[in-house]
Design a protein around this nucleic acid. Structure first.
Length: 719
RNA sequence: GCCGGGAUGGCGGAAUUGGCAGACGCGCGGGUCUCAAAAACCCGUGGGCUUCGGCCCGUGAGGGUUCGAUCCCCUCUCCCGGCACCA
């Protein structure tokens, strides 16, 4: 063995040995006495070769897995590809290669690069979501949700590009325009598939407590996304018609400060009331514009515009009649699509009141001073607002707290406690080719019919037409959609939508536990043995949707009796991004750094250590700050050389003492245990550097392996 | 606006969570080797004084608790991230 450290030959030689010995294969035998450890990395999207983001994320995931191997765990460290998705289809449109070909080529490249990068993957469990043997089970799971009423169809708007004549994903809409041709995007209503995730809103919120080791911000994002609001539904009567309109409020205690009432433009009562009051000619333009504008534009619209409807609402707590408006700032999709407006206690109502010259009235409790709550705001903008006490319409004071007000409303039959969530159902249909086809047949006599399990997978046709046009490639295909109804045998058509790729990634980790299983997506014993995963590692860009969907799927599978746990990932770690000179790397800036050439030059270990040592794993790495000058070596390379030299000298030295070295290894692992468990790789590496320096100084002083080991043992004793 | 997280040398960052602040690395300065550079190795490196033994000041700002605070409490300033007409 050469005493010189040559990373390239050293690494490739050992990587070959690992592969030949199957060193990193997880052992499925339930009798294996070792503790099991499922080190799960978010599977990559095969957009090209590996980039710096992958290098950073997988350096961390791999370090953790290896550390667990060294502690003697039976580690499951699998890899796969999130292989369906839009970029493959865009590539197909651009250069005429089928999505499958583009995808397979990228996966093959990434697999080679992962190997060269020295990843400790169990390659035997590899999955690809675009593989029919994978999406067969995605479809199978869809059908289980369908059977339970958790998958349903409803009308929903999509982004439509009139020039390309195609549906656009939200990310293809740039500032209200089509990313491909720049045409203004329109809104169209289509019947689409949804998963009823709202049924699980409360459980998704409650079980956040089981996420024992998630970053605070991710937990907060999950909570905010679910967005539970506690309040009351209260009925206001329309004076002119006598009909009752229900509103939702989180502040029923401010009912006494309501000075007007607002409908969302899409509210079903708007047109009727406007025509009754003779104001439709003024209301109509507002309503029509809202219907036409794309989703993105609607959100970007700022104004506090609105029109008086010409009717009045009666406040149930004091019998007062207040004017009714229609305004886009009230959303049909949240609450009931109608609100009571309390400008003194709500910023948006306040701005609307200022614009339209409406009264601002502060509500205070009988015993409180006027400095409370919205009083300051009202006085700052419009002078002293009118201050009212919370008196009932008969003059008797009402209880102060929200809870007491709700109880009173309930007893009086004027309202009831209510909870609303911000979370909406999950729209899973895509009018696209490169995804798992939705396994439903539409039959003129039987309606929506599930494709029988034994006819799965519903495979994608290979000869689809990817050019832009009116319908999706599946809908346009001459023969694909025509089938016999599985129920009555008559002429029927397949559903031509495919599933959101988030569906594939909501269960892929379960497939890792039962590779190649034929009776179902996974075997319960396998999954219950490995799951919940001990650690999930990946980018914070998936903090909301991907993780929420995984949590939802897990709960559904639990309810189906298919898994024995309710949360898939109690521990989560997000790596930081790799940036350059303070900003993101991008083609337009021309500052993209590719990891593979660096690995070819310096070696995989140097690359991995450089990234892990750069700072805390969660923090961004600015490559500009750590990249070596063009004519120099990276800092960790010389450390690796010293480690190599020390080990070589100690192992070949005249008084070699294997036991002391073994003890040293154990001590080293123990020394960094806590740091490794907490993903503090930079600290762990620092400690190991100190140890190495210590070894060197003993060896340089003429000490042999025995002395070096003794010195190290002494040094590590307090740890 | 609401929510979450931060602030330590020229830089990335340590400090076993209340016990010698600045570990380790980068960078920089000096040296050995070399015709020269790179590599490698050695010494130095928070600031200010210094009689060269040390002394004083220092973790965004101000206050508090404590024998003792980068760490705990209060107030403020600035930075980063998420959500955003969600009633």
């Amino acid at each position: 063995m050469s005493r010189r450290y040559d990373p390239l030959s050293f690494e490739t030689r050992w990587q070959r040995v690992w592969a030949e010995e199957g060193l990193y294969a997880a052992v499925d035998d339930p009798a294996d006495p070792r503790p099991r450890f499922f080190a799960l990395d978010m599977f990559p999207y095969p957009s090209g070769d590996l980039h710096m983001g992958h290098a950073e994320a997988f350096s961390g995931g791999d370090a953790l897995a290896r550390y667990r191997w060294m502690r003697g765990d039976n580690v499951l460290h699998p890899i796969g590809w999130d292989a369906f998705g839009l970029p493959a289809e865009n590539a197909a449109i651009k250069r005429g290669t089928p999505p499958a070909e583009w995808t397979e080529a990228n996966i093959a490249q990434q697999a080679i690069s992962f190997d060269r990068f020295g990843m400790s993957f169990d390659w035997s469990r590899r999955v690809q979501t675009c593989d029919p043997q994978f999406y067969r089970w995605t479809q199978w799971l869809f059908l289980r949700l369908f059977e339970r009423g958790l998958a349903y169809r409803a009308e929903s708007p999509v982004n439509w590009c009139p020039k390309d004549a195609t549906v656009l994903a939200n990310e293809q809409v740039i500032a209200g325009n089509c990313e491909r041709c720049g045409t203004a995007v329109e809104r169209r209503e289509l019947t689409q598939w949804f998963f009823k995730i709202t049924d699980y809103a409360q459980r998704l919120l409650d079980d956040v407590d089981l996420l024992v080791d998630w970053p605070d911000r991710v937990v907060t994002m999950q909570r905010n996304w679910i967005g539970r609001s506690d309040g009351a539904e209260v009925s206001f009567a329309i004076e002119e018609t006598g009909e009752e309109i229900t509103i939702f409020t989180t502040r029923p205690d401010t009912l006494w400060g309501a000075t007007f009432f607002v409908f969302a433009v899409e509210h079903p009562a708007v047109r009727r009331l406007a025509e009754l009051a003779g104001t439709w000619d003024r209301v109509q333009p507002l309503v029509e514009r809202a219907e036409r504008t794309s989703l993105v534009e609607r959100e970007a619209a700022d104004t506090k515009e609105g029109v008086a409807l010409g009717v009045h609402a009666v406040n149930p707590v004091n019998g007062e009649r207040i004017p009714v408006y229609v305004a886009p700032y009230v959303l049909m999709g949240y609450g009931t699509g109608a609100i009571m407006a309390v400008p003194a206690h709500d910023q948006r109502d306040f701005e609307f009141a200022r614009r339209h010259g409406l009264e601002v009235r502060v509500v205070i409790q009988p015993e409180e001073g006027p400095e409370l709550d919205g009083a300051t705001m009202a006085e700052a903008y419009v002078g002293p607002g009118r201050i009212v006490r919370s008196d009932r319409f008969d003059g008797t004071p009402v209880p102060a707290s929200i809870g007491e007000v709700v109880a009173w409303l309930d007893a009086e039959g004027r309202g009831r406690a209510a909870v609303h969530f911000r979370l909406r159902d999950w729209l899973i249909s895509r009018q696209r080719y490169w995804g798992a086809p939705i396994p439903i047949v539409h039959c003129p006599s039987c309606g929506e019919v599930a494709v029988p399990d034994d006819q799965l997978p519903v495979e994608l046709p290979e000869d689809a037409d990817f050019s832009l046009g009116g319908e999706s490639p599946l809908a346009r295909h001459p023969t694909w959609k025509h089938v016999a109804c599985p129920s009555c045998g008559g002429d029927a058509v397949r559903d031509t939508d495919t599933m959101d790729t988030f569906v594939d990634s909501s269960w892929y980790f379960l497939r890792y536990c039962s590779p190649g299983y034929e009776e179902g997506p996974f075997r319960r014993e396998d999954v219950d043995r490995w799951m919940p995963a001990n650690q999930y590692t990946g980018g914070v860009e998936h903090a909301i949707l991907h993780l929420l969907y995984c949590r939802f799927f897990t709960k559904v599978l639990h309810d189906l009796g298919m898994v024995g746990f309710v949360e898939p990932f109690p521990r989560l770690m997000n790596q930081g991004q790799v940036i350059y000179d303070g900003g993101s790397m991008s083609k337009s800036k021309g500052n993209i750094v590719e990891p593979m050439p660096l690995i070819e030059r310096w070696g995989a270990d140097t690359m991995r250590l450089t990234m892990l040592f750069a700072g805390p794993f969660e923090d961004d790495i600015d490559w500009k700050l750590i990249e070596p000058p063009p004519d120099r070596k990276p800092g960790v390379t010389s450390w690796l050389g010293r480690v190599f030299a020390a080990v070589a000298e100690a192992a070949e030295g005249p008084d070699e003492e294997p036991e002391a070295l073994v003890r040293f290894t154990h001590r080293s692992v123990r020394a960094v245990t806590e740091d490794m468990d907490r993903f503090r790789f930079n600290v762990a590496i620092s400690k190991l550097m100190v140890l190495t320096n210590e070894i060197r100084s003993v060896l340089d002083a003429g000490g042999g392996a025995r002395e070096a080991a003794r010195a190290l043992t002494q040094m590590l004793a307090p740890l």
